[in-house]
Design a protein around this nucleic acid. Structure first.
Lengths: 214, 214
DNA sequence: CCTCGCACTAAGCGTCTGCTTACAATGGTG
DNA sequence: CACCATTGTAAGCAGACGCTTAGTGCGAGG
């Protein structure tokens, strides 16, 4: 189980039992999918009776929402953080990809739920996370558009390019596992390079600093 | 509904009713997911009683398997066809991406089931489609490795590069819809260009022929 | 020591699930 | 026309589902 690794997640979820339920939910949802997971599964994995779930969450869907929302907020924060600390489009997009990919690899269990169990959310809750997703996509698209305007990126359509960049990151959650040949950080670095080339950045552009000598 | 477009799928499924059930299954599985779809949903969408499903398929899982297997065979055939008709690694990878992406866009309903409902298959049936998936990945990886050996591709690891290329194609099924701004064919062309740059092909390499003048 | 509130459990509710059974309509073949 | 395989239906079974209810253990406050 990857529970031990995920234990450092959600450091501030109020009752310890609620966090255990979220952890159990993540594992179950990621492995079997939301609809194939029963409240009895989750409760048993958390070492409790099925009714205990309803002490902390009004419904099974609310548990999914808590997980999904928290995960989306983390990835949004990640992207916003890079944009806040960097100004060069090349550095921005490389670091966004590095962090985004590394997160989807390291947290691939949570990421699987975040990216692929969206449709199971009730309409109202779905709208909340959909808004978070739009913000993430918007930021990436704007960074690419800015780089294209500066002439450092060569893309015919920032919309398509942003989709492609995010696709590379999202899809990592689908196939990555602990027995992958690369660490999350190493994979992020490699994908960062791939994306820069995809966006038409020539290697002869050392940007502001950090020559990244091998 | 996208049923009318999908109607040209499976031209050779024996009884017409079985095809209608598969069509209804594809739509339902893609929209709500396998586990959230009931046999009553499928039967109703096909205009039949729930028991009719069991005249043509031994179980709900068998219906999913028929859909998944057929879809995987189509994408494999697509990739094999390109490799059989082209010899240059650059042309091969560009056409593979073009066709793979276009298929995942045009058939995004089927593709969604094919790519994201795998885990719902029983173990034995899963192994069958997993073998097909391995063959697809293998071909793409070999083409990239060959291009890298020839010096036309610049990749540090063909495994990672193949994963990235397939990720771009697979993820199209997740976000593409009829109201996308690009036709499947146009998207395929654009992604083909992105992938070539990602693999380090310089635009100054016109390969054997086909200048692709715009 | 009593009392209250909170976290939790045992048991079970109404409903829905995949699937089966018993039977009817249809159409090709002798 | 008799026969039967094929293709469908109506009704329902056994089990599992999300969630509720009634009640228990226990630590904090008076």
């Amino acid at each position: 189980m990857t529970t031990s690794l995920s234990a450092e997640l959600w450091p501030d979820v109020q009752p310890e039992t609620a966090r255990r339920l979220m952890l159990a939910g993540v594992d179950a949802f990621a492995q079997r999918g939301y609809h194939a997971t029963t409240t009895r599964d989750i409760a048993a994995a958390a070492g409790m009776s099925p009714a205990a779930l309803y002490v902390h969450f009004p419904s099974k869907a609310a548990l999914l929402f808590a997980i999904s929302r928290y995960g989306h907020e983390q990835t949004l924060a990640l992207v916003e953080n890079v944009v806040a600390n960097e100004s060069d489009p090349v550095a921005r997009i490389r670091l966004v990809v590095e962090d985004f990919v590394a997160w989807h690899a390291r947290r691939h269990t949570v990421a699987r739920v975040v990216q692929y169990e969206l449709q199971a959310l009730p309409e109202q809750e779905f709208e909340v996370v959909a808004a978070l997703r739009r913000r993430i996509e918007r930021i990436v698209r704007d960074v690419i558009a800015e780089g294209a305007a500066d002439g450092v990126f060569t893309v015919s359509d920032p919309h398509v390019a942003a989709r492609a960049v995010l696709s590379l990151g999202v899809d990592v959650a689908r196939w990555y596992s602990e027995r992958a040949r690369q660490t999350p950080a190493a994979l992020g670095k490699e994908y960062g390079g791939l994306v820069l080339r995809m966006l038409g950045v020539t290697p002869e552009t050392p940007s502001t600093g950090s020559p990244d000598s091998a």
